[in-house]
């Protein structure tokens, strides 16, 4: 029975690969909105320029649009704003300098505690059986 299922599965996966190859991959038209959500509005409380209707936010959105049509990369555009307004203009800190801490801490703590947790779980289970 398992062999049959495996064969069916193989056929299914294969046909999906075919479908995947045939169906065209559409362009991501949301790139400017992605960038809007990564830049904070400098005069608002906790809003990105995408959410804000302040005139400076609208100006900044225009700059983003112009730079995208100029062919600049996301990093270049974000760097432009960071240089002018400081790191706090970015809606998430870059993974560099002291800001590495904000990214690394959850990763290190969660994986470390998961290891301790699973060792404890196994030990606890063994000690009982």
């Amino acid at each position: 029975m398992f062999k049959k299922i495996k064969l069916n599965l193989f056929i299914l996966v294969f046909s999906f690969i075919l479908i995947g190859c045939i169906s065209d991959v559409d362009e991501n038209n949301n790139r400017n909105y992605d960038l809007y959500s990564k830049i904070m509005c400098p005069v608002c409380d906790g809003q990105t320029i995408g959410e804000s209707q302040a005139s400076i936010a609208n100006d900044m959105k225009n700059i983003v649009d112009v730079y995208i049509s100029d062919g600049k990369t996301d990093d270049e555009i974000l760097k432009y704003f960071e240089d002018r307004y400081g790191t706090e203009i970015l809606s998430a800190p870059p993974n560099s300098g002291t800001n590495t801490i904000v990214w690394a801490t959850p990763l290190v703590l969660i994986s470390l505690s998961f290891i301790i947790f699973s060792v404890w779980l196994k030990k606890s289970a063994k000690g009982n059986s």
Binding site: M40, E88, S91, A92, W103
Partner: peptide, 13 residues
């Protein structure tokens, strides 16, 4: 140093 920790951070982590 002032930083903002917003949606992109939480979505990623």
């Amino acid at each position: 140093e002032t930083v903002t920790v917003g949606a992109p951070y939480y979505n990623a982590v």
